[in-house]
Design a binder for these strands. Structure first.
Length: 821
DNA sequence: AGCACGCCGACT
DNA sequence: GTCGGCGTGCTC
């Protein structure tokens, strides 16, 4: 056993074999991190995948420099899961590693070096080693990179390694490393001060130190402590010193043993124990659904819970989670980014307290590392056994999952697109669950066609929950025909008379309104009305969206922005107008039609700033806003009791989006948004503006008929060979030169057709044919059921490799995207 | 990905 | 004459 196959955090296929140096034989184990040299300069920390005794034949293995962990950091199941993701989604295992681990745990050439410290034997060291050692002694915690630079750019790892071997220096070990959790200081009274008499004594004692006295009294006031032999409450230090100058008095009182200061991890201070609530009792329909789920889990790995909005799915989840935790197993509750809101977090935190951890993309790396560690340390008192997280929380180091809940299962944001691995969190969750011998529950009001199909075919269990919690009436839906209104010249800007009346009525009754528009920005574009010139992004092939508040035109694909001129650069005309409309413009128009009304906006632009999202939602909840204008962000997981009207400004740009999922998505989105209307007591109203009131999807929405919509969709999918009847592979080609992508795509498509025939579609330019100066072409592969997928993948890999190896195509980026959404 | 090597154009 | 551009090959 002398070699180790390693996964390096690089987008390179396969593993890399390194020699295990003498002395490390028993330390190099699967799942541990090791430090290795790679290429001429770099040092990476890699994960050991396998240890073996097969000598490599066609290359000379380098040696592992050091082992970073005492115990494996990655379990066997995780390695298997990474392997599956990389195989299924056709990416390198290194790319999975990068997505899976917080970068804090992935030290690269940033590895810090330390002198080994006292009591070391004196070894013989040569001049070079002495020099490096000196550097490390002078500046402990230097990185390998820094030392390389300091020694004139010459590779130093050999020297570093021999110093590590001689135990003269050490690479900082994982056990000591990692970011410190953020702490918050709390102030309490010294335990000896616990009677009213003592309090009086202290007050007298502090007579001559007015500032300290003031502080002491202010503690008593805030904490409402009166001394009755009870322990004094801890209050946040921030709160105590808010009105005092500086830290001096606090320190003085601590020195006098009057106050004591304690620090806690901030993450433990999120809503916890004190107001912990019980899960509420289930109504008869929920109880029945719960029982059905339990029953189906006896025979199925996956159950789809199709529960309409407001049916109380979360309550059912809570009961299932409680049961699983009681069995000592872990639970993962996955939500799409936009649905993971404060509302749901607080609710679950109240019930599960410190057992529940939240994993969100907005967390800093140190917070992620902290969560990682708390999942890893199962069964310790600060460990998390329930994780509430976004798709990447699939990669947390669970050791024994009992249940994975995928809420809002139909959301396409569960599919990662940008960097590899391009995985679908719902599908990956099902795989992960099976590796843990756990069950998966998919929950949604509007199942994806794929999942519902699986439920119909018996592959998944299906549980319906059709009764709204407390029997709240469904909102009444009004279709406002924009074409008709336009014909009669009744349209006022973007609004039909129905919508304007609806808004007015709601406002008069002091009720709140949500307006949904699927586009952000002010205008979709600016146009010269004389020559038709439209400004386009100079890096991408899209027209620029005009944002009025900043007077900028912004490209929503690459973020490039520029200031619009007042004259057309093409023809010199100064008749430049805005066309189309986004959320910003609606916000603007509302204040014209309804002066004095308070309007808020919730879209990607308005929530860029940290906490802006919470602030806007909070304002709306508190009734400080009358109208909330937003994109799909408003559709998810929010529960506003004061809303009586939901307006959908333009359903048509959803319905006619050129994609085979457009109808499915329209139904889902409009249902979700509608669900925001009139939740608690009153019946709400939804007004949908469309030019096509007879469109089948609109009809299905009117009759609230998910099933009919599904049947229409599944029929189309079958007719035109789309998932779930076929499996899609999209191959994306990108290059800076139009000609290169076109030639490479044409050749790849031609070669693929030789193997797959008519299953190959394209190449085609996508809707946006150039992004960030790269031209893009897509080839689609439709593989019918029953064809062996590993074979397909191998052929695809081979053909892609074949194109990549040709001179002239070397610069072309070729990316397979499996099960694209 | 990141780095070295090597081959061509515009510069001190 | 050389500096630096990118196209290409390689990394255990």
């Amino acid at each position: 056993m002398a070699w180790a196959d390693l996964i390096l955090p690089l987008p390179l296929d396969g593993v890399f074999t390194y020699l295990i140096p003498g002395g490390l034989e028993h330390e190099v184990l699967p799942g541990k991190r090791v430090l290795v040299p790679f290429g001429s300069k770099k040092i990476y920390s890699a994960i050991v995948k396998k240890v073996h005794d097969t000598a490599p034949v066609d290359f000379k293995a380098k040696e592992i420099l050091s082992v970073l962990d005492r115990d494996p950091l990655i379990s066997e199941i995780q390695i298997k899961f990474w392997e599956w993701i990389s195989e299924y989604y056709m990416c390198a295992e290194g790319e999975v590693l990068k997505a899976a681990m917080p970068s804090g745990l992935r030290l690269e050439s940033e590895t810090r070096l330390l002198p080994a410290g006292e009591g070391q034997q004196i070894h013989q060291i040569n001049d070079k080693e002495a020099l490096i050692l000196k550097m490390i002694e002078n500046k402990p915690l230097s990185t390998i990179n820094e030392i390389t630079v300091a020694s004139g750019g010459k590779p130093v790892y050999g020297i570093v390694k021999s110093l590590i071997d001689k135990n003269i220096i050490i690479a900082r070990e994982s056990l000591k490393e990692g970011p410190k959790p953020r702490k918050e200081a709390f102030i309490s009274l010294h335990p000896s001060i616990n009677t009213e008499a003592r309090l009086h004594e202290i007050t007298a004692l502090l007579e001559k130190a007015p500032r300290q006295l003031e502080l002491f009294l202010s503690y008593l006031e805030i904490s409402e402590y009166t001394g009755n032999n009870l322990p004094a409450p801890e209050i946040p230090k921030k709160k105590l010193i808010r009105n005092t100058a500086g830290n001096g008095p606090v320190k003085a009182l601590i020195d006098k043993h009057i106050l004591i200061e304690t620090s806690y991890d901030i993450s433990r201070l999120l809503p916890t124990g004190e107001d912990q609530k019980e899960a509420s009792n289930l109504n008869v329909f929920q109880a029945e659904a719960l029982e059905n789920i339990t029953d189906l889990f006896k025979t199925r790995e996956v159950v789809l819970l199709n529960g309409i909005t407001s049916a109380g799915k979360t309550e059912i989840y809570i009961h299932l989670i409680e049961r699983e935790l009681a069995r000592g197993r872990q639970v993962l509750y996955l939500l799409p980014e936009i649905a993971l809101t404060a509302q749901i977090i607080i609710r679950l935190k109240h019930i599960f307290g410190e057992k529940a951890g939240v994993y969100h993309s907005k967390f800093s790396d140190s917070e992620r590392t902290e969560i990682w560690n708390r999942v890893l340390r199962k069964d310790e008192n600060d460990s998390y056994s329930l994780i509430l997280g976004v798709r990447s929380s699939l990669f947390l180091p669970f050791s024994d999952i009992g249940l994975i809940i995928v809420d809002e299962e139909h959301e396409n944001t569960f599919k990662q697109f940008d960097p590899a691995p391009r995985y679908h969190a719902r599908d990956a969750a099902i795989m992960l669950a099976s590796m843990h011998k756990a069950k998966t529950l998919l929950g949604t009001a509007t199942p994806s066609v794929e999942s519902y199909y699986n439920a119909q075919s018996g592959k998944y269990g299906l549980v319906n929950l059709t009764r709204r919690y407390l029997d709240i009436a469904l909102p009444s839906i009004v279709i406002a025909d924009t074409r008709e209104a336009r014909k009669r010249k009744k349209m006022k800007s973007l609004f039909t008379p129905q919508l304007l009346e609806g808004i007015e009525l709601a406002l008069s009754k002091n009720e709140q309104i949500i307006l949904f528009q699927n586009r952000r920005g002010y205008a979709l574009y600016i146009e010269c009305s004389d020559c038709g010139w439209i400004p386009v992004c100079k890096h991408c092939d899209v027209s620029m969206t005009y944002h009025k508040t900043v007077n900028q035109m912004v490209c929503h694909y690459c973020g490039f922005s520029s200031r619009p001129g007042t004259v057309c650069p093409d023809c010199g005309s100064n008749d430049i107008r805005t066309r189309g409309f986004g959320t910003e413009k609606i916000e603007d128009e509302i204040s014209i039609f309804f002066p004095g009304v308070k309007v808020g906006r919730l879209d990607l632009d308005s929530v860029r700033k940290k906490r802006a999202h919470e602030r806007i939602i909070g304002d709306f909840e508190a009734g400080n806003l009358d109208i909330l204008v937003g994109t799909q962000m408003i559709a998810k997981g929010l529960d506003f009791s004061g809303v009586s009207l939901v307006g959908i400004i333009n359903a048509d740009n959803l319905l006619f989006f050129p994609d085979f999922r457009a109808h499915e998505r329209s139904f889902q989105l409009i249902s979700q948004v509608s669900g925001r209307a009139g939740r608690k007591t009153r019946q709400g109203t939804v007004i949908i503006q469309t030019g096509f009131p007879d469109h089948p999807v609109i009809k299905n929405i009117l009759s609230n008929n998910y099933r009919k919509n599904y049947l229409e969709q599944i029929y189309e999918r079958k007719q035109f060979s789309y998932p779930p009847f076929v499996r899609l592979f999209r191959i994306i080609l990108k290059d800076q030169h139009r000609e290169t992508v076109e030639k490479a795509s044409a050749l790849l498509a031609e070669n693929l057709r030789k193997r797959f025939g008519g299953r190959v579609l394209g190449p085609e330019y996508p809707l946006i044919s150039r992004i960030q100066n790269r031209y893009i072409m897509n080839i689609m592969l439709k593989i019918e059921k029953g064809v062996a997928l590993p074979k397909v993948r191998n052929l695809l890999r081979k053909e892609i490799g074949q194109i990549r190896s040709q001179p002239g195509f070397k610069t072309c980026i070729i990316i397979p995207d499996v099960d694209p959404v």
